[in-house]
Amino acid sequence: MNATIIKFLKISIPLALGVFLIYYSYSKFSEQQLADISFYFSNANYGIVLLSVFFSILSHFLRAFRWNFMLEPLGYRPKLANNFMAVNIAYLMNIFIPKSGEISRAIVLDKYENVPFKKGFGTIISERVVDLIFLLGFTAIALLIQFDKLYNYLAEVIQPTKLIIALIGLITLIIVGFLFLKYSKSKLQQKVKKFYLGLKEGVFSIIHMRRKGAFLLLSCIIWGLYLLSFYTAFQALDETSIVPISTIIIVFVVGSFAFAFTNSGFGFYPFFVAGILVVFNIPETIGTAFGWIVWTSNIASIVCFGVLSLILLPFYNKIKL
């Protein structure tokens, strides 16, 4: 299949699914329910929403600061401003092309800080592994809190058969890639192997970093800020301010997966957040309004900081030079 067509499908399919979920969600509501959703939007405390967004932006700043902990063992220490703008651009890119943000972050540092792309990208992959561990940790907590309800909900959303097929496909791809790198003698293999070695160096930079304790502490603070941002957003509506922290953690996990594994949760995030809140007896109208308020406010901040970073990045580095 043509590479352009594949790229187009990667962008268009998630967007199409997001549009479908939006249509599907709202087509179920009566006129009165739609009016209720509009009421929740208009009566939300947007001062609290802004505070929630502030915690989220602060987590992005700390992520940029933490990045240097992994780059230092490779012999690089980029400017914090460049790191922060690279992170902002990454979140912006992920809105339009899923998972393209990791590539854009490495490109920014390659261009403005002379950090080789493969090494910078390797540190980002390592960082994502750490993030996945934290997300799985929160998932484990959520399962311990309400295993039955969460399991039944996920079983309806994610069919086990499809999940098994996807895992088999991933394992097969890894095995084929390994055999290609080990036994092929082609020029393509040499290029791929060279890239792989640089990537490996970046990934394993976490093992060689000097300040592992500080890295772990910052990682805990970053994920604590994610949860604090989400908890704060719950206080923006009177109807959700009474939701217990145990339920908030579960909704946080579901929302995190929806945001991380789609194009920044477009259509998916409000749908899944409303769906899991229904399990805990929160009306779907309230859950839908809440999901859209959280998603829209965060996306607005991502677009704002991302566009500003795209504009300021070349000027900052021109002045610096």
Rank of each mutant, 00 (worst) to 15 (best):
124 I>H: 04
144 L>A: 12
107 I>M: 15
115 V>D: 01
181 L>N: 04
187 K>V: 08
91 Y>F: 12
175 I>C: 02
132 L>Q: 01
170 L>E: 05
92 L>V: 03
172 T>Y: 14
117 F>Y: 07
135 L>I: 00
84 F>S: 04
167 L>V: 04
130 V>W: 09
188 L>G: 10
88 N>I: 10
78 P>W: 07
207 I>T: 05
209 M>Y: 14
116 P>E: 03
125 I>T: 02
82 N>C: 03
91 Y>V: 00
117 F>V: 01
194 K>C: 13
157 V>D: 10
122 G>W: 00
219 S>R: 14
201 E>K: 10
149 K>R: 13
81 A>R: 07
206 I>K: 08
214 A>H: 09
116 P>R: 03
87 V>Y: 10
123 T>Q: 02
154 L>D: 03
186 S>K: 04
158 I>Y: 07
144 L>D: 14
95 I>F: 15
107 I>V: 06
176 V>T: 09
161 T>A: 07
184 S>I: 02
80 L>K: 06
82 N>A: 05
190 Q>Y: 15
172 T>N: 11
100 S>H: 08
104 S>I: 01
179 L>N: 03
128 R>N: 03
139 T>F: 13
184 S>Q: 00
145 I>W: 14
115 V>A: 04
211 R>A: 06
139 T>E: 03
102 E>P: 14
206 I>E: 06
154 L>G: 01
211 R>Q: 08
154 L>H: 02
76 Y>E: 00
208 H>I: 06
89 I>Q: 04
153 Y>L: 08
169 G>K: 10
94 N>H: 14
89 I>H: 08
159 Q>T: 11
166 A>H: 05
149 K>P: 00
208 H>Y: 12
98 P>W: 11
118 K>N: 14
76 Y>Q: 00
211 R>M: 02
164 I>F: 13
84 F>M: 04
153 Y>E: 09
81 A>K: 09
204 F>T: 11
148 D>E: 15
184 S>N: 04
154 L>I: 13
190 Q>G: 14
163 L>P: 07
138 F>K: 15
124 I>D: 09
121 F>M: 03
100 S>D: 05
180 F>I: 15
90 A>L: 09
116 P>S: 04
171 I>F: 08
125 I>Y: 01
206 I>F: 15
172 T>W: 12
141 I>Y: 09
101 G>T: 00
139 T>P: 04
128 R>V: 00
189 Q>K: 07
140 A>G: 05
146 Q>T: 06
146 Q>F: 13
187 K>C: 05
113 E>P: 01
157 V>L: 14
178 F>S: 13
89 I>T: 04
213 G>H: 12
119 K>G: 10
205 S>N: 06
180 F>Q: 06
206 I>P: 15
137 G>A: 03
93 M>D: 11
193 K>F: 02
118 K>L: 15
173 L>M: 08
173 L>V: 05
155 A>C: 07
186 S>L: 03
175 I>P: 01
145 I>T: 02
137 G>R: 15
190 Q>C: 10
159 Q>G: 10
171 I>Y: 03
220 C>W: 09
77 R>L: 08
112 Y>H: 12
